[in-house]
Design a binder for these strands. Sequence first.
DNA 1: TTGGATTTTTTCGCATTCGAACAAAAAGCG
DNA 2: CGCTTTTTGTTCGAATGCGAAAAAATCCAA
Lengths: 378, 378
Amino acid sequence: MRKNPIFQRETLGTAVLHVRSGRATSRTTLAKALGISPSTTGLYIDQLIADRYLDESGLNQGPMGRPRRILTTRSDAGWFAGVEFNAQRIQAAGVDFSGSLKASVEMALTSEDTAESVIKSILTCVARLANKMKGGLLSVGLGVPGLVDAQAGVGLHYAFIPDWNNVPVVEKIGSKLQVPVILQNNLRAIALAERWFGRGHDLNDYIILGPRSGFGIAMVQGGRLIEGAHFAAGEVGRWPWPLGGDASGNSQEMHHVLSAPATWRRLAGAGPRARKPEDLRAALASVAGVEGPVWDAVCMDYARVIGCLHMILDTGVFILHGPLTVLGERFCQSIVDSACHLMPALHTAGLQVVHSALGDNAGALGAASLAMEAWMPA
Amino acid sequence: MRKNPIFQRETLGTAVLHVRSGRATSRTTLAKALGISPSTTGLYIDQLIADRYLDESGLNQGPMGRPRRILTTRSDAGWFAGVEFNAQRIQAAGVDFSGSLKASVEMALTSEDTAESVIKSILTCVARLANKMKGGLLSVGLGVPGLVDAQAGVGLHYAFIPDWNNVPVVEKIGSKLQVPVILQNNLRAIALAERWFGRGHDLNDYIILGPRSGFGIAMVQGGRLIEGAHFAAGEVGRWPWPLGGDASGNSQEMHHVLSAPATWRRLAGAGPRARKPEDLRAALASVAGVEGPVWDAVCMDYARVIGCLHMILDTGVFILHGPLTVLGERFCQSIVDSACHLMPALHTAGLQVVHSALGDNAGALGAASLAMEAWMPA
DNA sequence: TTGGATTTTTTCGCATTCGAACAAAAAGCG
DNA sequence: CGCTTTTTGTTCGAATGCGAAAAAATCCAA
């Protein structure tokens, strides 16, 4: 063998990503995926195996010809941390080098919490994860609510933590942990979770619907996140409601009608002042079966929004996240039906609404995906 | 000098693009723009100058240091054709190698025209342009209305030409002209025109508003066009109207209310059955000054749509195209004001609406931009 | 069982691209 | 005018990545 060349760290990183995702299983397929020659790919793989990042795990016989030497990521090569939070809780996940969820941790937040205390709690969560994980921490992904400047690594604004303004999150966490830290809005992180752990596996265009305390969406177009010129893409919740608004300027925001608690209030027939139940998922599950005019009206409202979004962006699939997933398949199907009824053009447009299979820790998984996607060998 | 290396055609092409756009004016700045080393860039430039694509036109003294040797494109190195059409007319533009519009041609279409006859007319237009241009034709850009598969080079569907279904436009035109042919939806082509000839010069996120016989938009996010999973992104015109629709399924489409002719009818107080005037621009210009409740209502309707779009995509600027540009600055400003009134959150979101300065042949210019962007040396 | 056929992987020479040092061209300044 | 400073462009050896061909590993068929 010749003298080891100095490999491009980024190429090594993407090579690992392709192997981890299962999109590339052998040297040749990886060469095609990376767009570099098979010979060079061989050298890169040799290096990654020598450094104990990858492994060869047997052969894969195609219909003919020399069998592929299957490449896999070594699960013991280190781990990634993903942390997500909102006003109520912090959620953290530890993912091993081959991309399997191995540990998770949760911590409650209160209205007393400040930017400083949240940062501290995030560090505590990572430390707790570290106890449960083997090997070294490789990188940390953070899913942060509100407005986020991902490039600068700054949390710009989040309404539910009073002093969460221009918080240099990456700097603060990174200086403590001494590993790369990647920041993103939490809903956009969920979009990545869907790609690594959910249904987005081979989707390039999809939209995450995230009705929680508000109503936001995250958009993936051609495999990349849409962030917007001021990092505020997807703030659909600020649409006036009823749609189009009242010219007198008195209309409310969609947030207040299509959030998860508001949806529960409507379905449960609770008044607008009814206190939000402790366990929103359970409360929603208990009203999931009840069809009728109220159910139809709720579905119609979601259909109004989703139909409009589909017309603009022509994405393949809408993936429903958050508490409303407990309403199940029927909810999604009703939305599609209502939307097609409302906008006949949708009949041929292939509108699809599905609910995520990721469950409650999608945010942390998404954050971990950020960490995975950004990592590259030293 | 050493033996000439075999340069990457694509790199040569992008080098020319950077020089033409004025973003790179010297070897060093170009090196930075291309992301390759200054030494290699030097070799590339030498080659492009030797092949008479580029020229050195004097020096540019910075505040200190050796002056830059200014690079310019040679206007005599060939020309690009851009052709756009809709149901009424074909429009073609000839652009020289340095990106200046040098000739334009127009041809009327009628309801008699078929896919075949349109293709033939496009070829005629290019031939007429060729008479007016110097040098060889380098590539052709086509801005085609309706649904377009840009990658495959196929016009999928256009309602106003009966048999315009799955027309292999690139193949048909390319086999005749023997130069590369690039296809794109005409509104999306206009988005490129705005970048090369208009205000999009240093914008990475903007939206083209194209109210004509319908209402469509083209979106640029992070410097790239959004096409959608089925090439149908931007079909806002199919939103139900009034926004949100009527659950009974009887609402009409936005197309019918916010198209250019419909807007004229409203502003002019003409009935819904009034015949569209011959010269829509002139007709609109004549009602541009008349403010009042009708004017306000029209602006408010545009504001409803544009406000919603801004909330989703968080683009910097909306650029108004088509006949409605004659309504001028005041129209744009009224829309912004109405939108902010309707959605208070927009006050801080920096919504901007401007009208294009490109005039009526924006489509042909956009198509020519397609040609320019795709070209690379043989 | 031996010889294609087919596909993956490796070997090896070659050349494009890089990096670092160097040359060039100007401004500022005494 | 000569010196330093600053920025641009070029030279040249070194090396990363490529292509073609060879090797390897399997299936299939005679």
